[in-house]
Design a protein around this nucleic acid. Structure first.
Lengths: 239, 239, 239, 239
DNA sequence: AATGAATGAGTTTTCATTCAT
DNA sequence: GATGAATGAAAACTCATTCAT
């Protein structure tokens, strides 16, 4: 909580990568810079991996810097070489997960043709990613309040980036007349919300014996199919 | 560890001596007990109010017992007279909100006749309660990990109690043929989820300039009306 | 630890007993005073009993004023009506035990004729008292350091009073020529010491399966009989 | 709760990176480890010394971790780097003293030939050690109640180890016919007890102006010489 | 005389952060 | 670059003591 003026990097030192050392003169320097960049990346990964691992089991508050260092196999001091703050590590851990959404969901959308199937595929993949990082998703909801304004904003903007594909895909289907009078951003946001809920209320679904497959199936029926226009409904039903 | 609850302390008053109170009428006893009970209730409210107030702004973890005491205008010691534990205060804060759901939502349902309107009314009121305790709802999602097993179970069972009326009201409409092939528990849970989201993603709705009324309206269209059977749709549309 | 100027009695209010109210005028006053004195005595006993009871099981440090009050069936406030301090209660508890030594050991001595048998009887009874208050004896050794200078002095002078009869009885036997070149105060103190040890090292004697009777017997042989003069030895052996 | 002992932390040094220390000779490693070990030992001594120093004057309960830290010239946090618990420090303080008994008493016994002189030498040295750690011995008696079961057991078994040489030396003399019908474990235990008493009742001996030398002398006469057989008595008297 | 609610300084323990090596 | 010993502020919780009733 106290932050007695850290003189450290503020943004993770991946910025000392290949590109920014281009203006350096000697070859040797270049090579060193590359090595340094690679090492830095490796270290960051090592640390964030450890952090994610621990936070998923114990919640972010229960994980100390000492524990992260130990689990990552590095010293506490090194943590502060790569991250200016405890918060930066938490942020990096959350970012790691959100990046997964940004990569995997659009990929699945690309691979699908039909607008309605695109919605279903996107939602399905979204749920899959949630399931792959269940604890980390919960972490996102838990941690928000303890982040700095800047950190929170960063997470929020990244989350919007994961939401956009869902909205887009809904909007596209609406444009094509496959959805019946629907507000794309509402439905898109709902899809994200309901995917997140798979993690947030996992205790409930476990208790009521609902598997991920069943969950996806029921949600598709309840929130997607119910909004299809008659034509789309017929077309999709046939598949 | 022990969870005798705050009330445990309150009624240990049998220790108020036998012999020396012989001259007391039972009236006096009653009055004392009542006064004591009233004070205790007042204190509890005072403390929980302070706790909720602080936790809403800073998240439950960032609020110390010292801070709660100060904000409630009492001493730290007194906190422990009424609550055995830090957790008990958090629990009481959450319970306070969940009780509001248990009271207000069924009341609105009772007051409504038509099955479909019951769903809409229930959801609307649910959203209203969420809005009235927005920060406390967020608290519920944030806190889960730091509660003891018993505390968590208590919260979960209370939450199920708030969920049930929504499921019932959906099931009733489904029974009456007003809903088109719908899984009542899925739709019911979705209604709760989407109401919670009004609190959880409030930053998003604020950013996109969506008011509570608009939010409710759009959700009713997107998740309720879309699932109506043709007959119900016609009937409701007319209103 | 902090003692922010208690305005209270300093010496336990048994001093407001019968005698000191003799100068009071009206009969009614006298009766009241007597009643008051009796009540005071009863209260003190009640409190000290509770304190001894608790301290014997948990050690004096582990017993809070709240616990004493509860166990005595009175309020915390009342504790401070009869004792100015926590220390006064501890002191009273220890004094209670030491008084037992002062009463019982001399009584046994009186009842015995032969000088050597007096030593043995005195030691035996001393051990019996220790056994009757085993935990309280331990308490005496444990508590010493946490008492005020005055409290410690009080305990020490009382302990000397329990020691004296042992020394006297040894000196008497020495005078009569029953002991062989012995320093009375050393032997007397040893007898007290070894009796205390029955409490202090009770874990050891329990482990090595030594009963109180055996312990007394062995000590009598080892430290008393070994010091007898030839004449005394013959005389005692015959019994 | 865990009692991995202070040393546990010390040798986790395998975490000092592999790759980046490749240029280190094993010499460097060794030196680092040695330095670290030496520092750790120094720190432990520093802390225990401070603890003993304070506890001797105020009793173990009255000494806070803050006070120990301050007196040792280190931070509170560091205390917990070397000792998992408050109890571990108390334990270490007591153990320190008991180790002195284990070393010094047998050494003196070895250096003496005659069985009776061995007893006397052993007791004398035992008393010397007590005198060197007078306050710490008192600590041992005071602290027992506040230790965990495991801690208490540890202390007790260490104490038995200090007792054994005394019992052995008495048994040896008894075997050789130098003692007259004596129970070795009783006499041995008495010697320990009376040595401890030099510390426990130091106020008494100070008051009665008994020096350590006098004390030892009188006890030797009262409990050792008195139990000698005639032959041994003659032999020893001549020296 | 008796109560017990209220106090708050004090206790042990944790952990983010720094810095000499 | 890397270490990890060291720091100390802050947290949860306890309890002797006071005082209005």
């Amino acid at each position: 909580m106290s932050s007695r003026g850290p003189r450290a990097v503020r943004f993770r030192s991946s910025s000392c990568g290949r590109k920014w050392s281009a203006d350096m003169t000697s070859e040797t320097h270049d090579v060193n810079a590359v090595v340094r960049g690679a090492r830095a990346e490796f270290r960051e990964k090592q640390i964030v991996d450890a952090a994610v691992r621990l936070m998923q089991t114990k919640g972010s508050h229960a994980v100390s810097m000492q524990a992260i260092a130990k689990s990552a196999g590095v010293s506490v001091g090194l943590l502060y070489k790569y991250f200016s703050d405890r918060e930066q590590i938490v942020l990096a851990a959350i970012t790691r997960v959100l990046e997964d959404f940004r990569l995997r969901v659009p990929a699945v959308i690309e691979a699908t043709e039909d607008p309605v199937h695109r919605i279903i595929a996107a939602f399905t993949e979204f749920c899959q990613v949630v399931d792959d990082h269940r604890q980390a998703v919960v972490l996102t909801y838990q941690t928000s309040r303890s982040l700095s304004r800047a950190g929170l904003a960063s997470i929020q903007s990244q989350e919007l980036a994961t939401l956009q594909p869902l909205i887009d895909v809904v909007a596209e289907a609406a444009d094509k007349g496959d959805l019946h009078e629907v507000d794309a951003s509402t439905l898109g946001h709902n899809l994200m919300t309901l995917a997140h809920m798979w993690a947030l209320k996992h205790w409930y679904f476990q208790q009521t014996q609902v598997s991920l497959g069943q969950y996806i199936d029921r949600q598709v029926r309840t929130v997607v199919l119910s909004n299809l226009s008659d034509s789309a409904r017929k077309r999709v039903k046939l598949n």
